[in-house]
Design a protein around this nucleic acid. Structure first.
Length: 782
RNA sequence: GGGCGAUUAGCUCAAUUGGUAGAGCACUUCGUUUACACCGAAGGGGUUAGAGGUUCGAGUCCUCUAUCGCCCACCA
């Protein structure tokens, strides 16, 4: 071995990381090619929204954490399929473009808008690709997909058609969740809670006997759509009202009183106004009691003709004017300021409305048991994340509305017969189709013979396309064995969307769960513990981070949180990552300097310290392997680091210096042999976390294979020896004692003591010479 | 209101199935040693959020309380 000159004094991560990125790419190291019988490990990694122009430590964290596992599995001999995709269609991208270009929808054509989306999509993909490359994310870039491209479009359309044929997809006119700002139907999972300040209005309703009742509401603008008043049948205050009628103030239509046990006597005035529709409660009463339908809102969130003099006003404006008018007529009894949480559309913060509309739905709400049962078949890492899934399933109230009245997305593959409304479906071989640009292949409606067809203009919910990824991957590599996938890594906020919808689809299509394992990562937090967000601007852009610290150091930081846990951004931890790489470098240098005369072919007689460190190594390999196998990269890192820093660097190297520098050839050889063994395995164990420095050192010192990342993960070896080193710990304690003595007496560790009397009990016949030489004492006594 | 997770040294976090509370950073005192000053050694620092319970023994198990984060419900 001749390596000394090859290791410069300092490690330059900028040069080295760039070099290996290029080398891995040139050598196609991570490209997937499959031979029947290979152990597969297929990763269905989240296709990020390309609209993210604000990549930060949180993104680095979650993708790096999944990648630790991927690199580990690759070294374990799995044939890894790890493609990356981009989720580039749908509302997130549209909203991003609207905001970025301050789009006025009246002044832009659909085509211009879509072109802008495409342009931003391209840019976004480049930004991500660049970051993943810099970070050393080992994806197979030859198998990239984007959700709007022909193949994913085809798969998404096939999926809908299959669901339709199986009766799981239906089109119906129903009260649905609607976002007035985005002008589209949305689904339950697109909503989130938001605290809003509002006013509770106490409004007087005249009743037929000349008296009046008071109802409390935050939404007086719904008065024109008020269809009934409810009270609890046991509420003595209102019992007599049951046969009376009330008159809706300002609008003067008569409504009935009804009872329901679900009305809470304590809430408001105990009288509940039901409008079609203000909230879930209204909807249920409407369904249950067959109430009249009074559709009040237009798609852009204004009152329609039912609003009378308030027609054309926005919800907020109508609320304001109705309150004014009620006040003028003395019908507004009082107002209270309140803070309540409102369901808003997560993409734009607009309160969600319920309107009557014809949409496409996938049946999910009535099959909760099935989704729960299927969810249990998946290994959730960490386990309690299943509960997040369970809670969501149990809260399902709506079928999944998959149609969106938007532009930039995968089109629904349907036409309708103009005469009879028959749904015309293309054949699978003709997919993908764009109904607005193409005519159906058939010339006549099979039902009525009409020759005119109307295209469906809706596009799919963004999740309707991304939920296909588990079975898109097999199409991407044209290989049926790739389904179901082995690992789905993602953040916890998309359990209810990406994970759940993926399960729904795979169960419908193949009666099988789409993935065997889910690993859920937490959020990146800023140094104060706040969630990193674009709005707060509390982050350093990810590319700057990598530039400043290097990929290995940032990746090291990403090991700091266990699965599902949030992780604070912490420069000290990144620094520590850098420190580890420096330490690895220096140890490598030390080894290179002392390996010149090492003959790998000789047999060596191991000494106690050699056996000790080899046993420690075995123990570390065992634990690190167990931890990686259970997705606990954080614990694995701790074990490896502890071994490397505290056992190898702090002790073993000090233990053997006298042998390496001395004249005893066979003793030196044994130390060289041991050092060689333990260092290569240490490097390998660090490789999934610190891919660059380990590759650099491996390439210089060991050179066995073209890359450490395709070398075999270390296994335990059971060192063969006649030595009993069960008391070796005592020798270490003795060394510690001398170290402490030297430190307390301000003697340098290098200075040789003439004599030292140990307090520690240790077998000096066995370890005396070793202790004397390792800690530099001429004569040691007990 | 319900659920999940958390609460351990000044800070960030560890602690297998219950068995003497540990590390890093920071702090203090030393030390330039032929891998490393992008360094090394040693030291101080704790009523494990609080209260009760089970146990020979509790950071760990149970109950309650407090605080933080997240999810769900709540729009009368």
């Amino acid at each position: 071995m001749k390596t000394e000159e090859a290791l410069p004094k300092n490690y330059d991560f900028k040069i080295s990381e760039e070099k290996w990125r290029k080398s891995w790419e040139d050598n196609k190291l991570f490209e997937f090619s499959y031979n029947k019988g290979d152990k597969l490990f297929v990763v269905d990694t989240p296709p990020p929204y390309v609209s993210a122009d604000h990549l930060h430590a949180g993104h680095i964290m979650s993708y790096a954490q999944a990648e630790f596992i991927v690199r580990y599995k690759r070294m374990q001999g799995f044939n890894v399929f790890y493609p990356m995709g981009f989720d580039d269609n749908g509302l997130p991208t549209e909203r991003f473009v609207e905001k970025k270009y301050k789009i006025n929808k009246a002044k832009i054509t659909k085509k211009e808008f879509i072109d802008l989306c495409l342009k931003e999509t391209e840019k976004g993909i480049e930004t991500y690709k660049n970051l993943w490359n810099k970070l050393g994310i080992s994806v197979d870039w030859s198998k990239t997909y984007s959700t709007i491209a022909p193949l994913p479009t085809k798969v998404s359309q096939w999926s809908l058609i299959d669901l339709y044929k199986k009766g799981a997809l239906y089109r119906q006119e129903l009260p649905i969740l609607w976002c007035p700002t985005c002008g589209t139907a949305i689904s339950q999972s697109d909503m989130e809670d938001k605290e809003k300040t509002s006013k509770m209005n106490y409004i007087s309703f005249p009743i037929s006997n000349g008296e009046s009742v008071i109802i409390a509401t935050t939404r007086p603008e719904l008065l024109p759509a008020c269809v009934a008043l409810y009270f609890n049948p046991e509420d003595e205050r209102y019992k007599e009202l049951i046969n009376k009628k009330a008159v809706v103030p300002l609008f003067n239509h008569e409504i009935n009183f009804k009872t329901s046990k679900e009305v809470d006597k304590e809430k408001g005035t105990g009288l509940m106004m039901v409008c079609t529709w203000g909230d879930q409660e209204d909807l249920e009463k409407w369904r249950l009691d067959n109430l009249e339908t009074k559709s009040l809102l237009t798609p852009d969130g204004k009152l329609n003709e039912l609003g009378g003099k308030y027609q054309g006003l926005t919800i907020e404006k109508a609320r304001e004017e109705i309150i004014n008018d009620l006040q003028k007529q003395g019908l507004l009894i009082r107002q209270e300021d309140i803070i309540h949480s409102v369901n808003v559309h997560e993409r734009c913060d607009t309160p969600v409305e319920l309107i009557l509309s014809k949409q496409w739905f996938i049946k999910i709400a009535d099959l909760k048991d099935k989704w729960l049962e299927m969810g249990k078949k998946i290994n959730w890492h960490p386990k309690h994340m299943y509960q997040a899934y369970e809670i969501w399933i149990n809260s399902l109230k709506w079928d999944w509305c998959v149609s969106r009245q938007r532009y930039y997305g995968v089109p629904f593959p349907f036409w309708y017969c103009k005469e009879c409304g028959e749904i015309i479906i293309p054949e699978e071989k003709d997919l993908p189709v764009s109904p607005t640009e193409q005519k159906p292949k058939i010339s006549k409606c099979p039902k009525c013979g009409s020759t005119e067809f109307i295209p469906e203009t809706d596009v799919m919910d963004t999740w309707a396309t991304s939920s296909c990824t588990p079975f898109l991957l097999k199409e991407l590599a044209n290989n049926e064995d790739l389904f179901p996938v082995d690992l789905r890594p993602n953040a916890h906020e998309i359990i209810r969307t990406w994970d759940f919808y993926s399960i729904v689809k795979s169960v419908y299509h193949f009666n099988e769960v789409p993935f065997k394992n889910i690993m859920v990562s937490g959020h990146g937090l800023d140094e104060q513990g706040k969630k990193i967000s674009k709005r707060l601007g509390n982050y350093v852009p990810s590319d700057k981070l990598v530039e400043e610290w290097g990929a290995d150091a940032i990746r090291y930081w990403a090991t700091g949180a266990g699965l599902g846990q949030n992780l604070r951004f912490n420069p000290i931890e990144i620094k520590k990552g850098k420190q580890i790489t420096t330490k690895l470098w220096n140890v490598a240098k030390f080894i290179a300097m002392n390996m010149e005369d090492f003959d790998t072919n000789k047999e060596y007689t191991l000494e106690p310290s050699d056996v000790w460190i080899l046993n420690e190594l075995d123990e570390t390999i065992k634990k690190a392997t167990e931890y990686f196998d259970s997705y606990q990269y954080a614990k694995a890192k701790n074990e490896i680091e502890e071994f490397f820093m505290s056992k190898l660097a702090d002790y073993y190297i000090e233990f053997i210096k006298y042998r390496l520098y001395g004249d005893n050839k066979s003793s030196k050889g044994a130390a060289q042999y041991t050092l060689n063994c333990i260092f290569i395995d240490t490097l390998k164990m660090f490789a999934p976390i610190l891919p660059f420095i380990t590759e650099e050192i491996y390439s210089i010192i060991f050179k066995k294979q073209k890359s450490i990342h395709i070398s075999k993960w270390p296994t335990t070896k059971e060192t063969k020896t006649d030595l009993d080193i069960s008391d070796f710990k005592e020798a270490i304690s003795a060394i510690d004692e001398v170290r402490k003595y030297k430190s307390e007496n301000q003697i340098s560790l290098g200075a040789e003591l003439k004599e030292y009397k140990l307090n520690t009990k240790v077998d000096l016949n066995k370890y005396g010479e070793f202790i004397e030489k390792a800690i530099r004492v001429k004569k040691i006594n007990c």
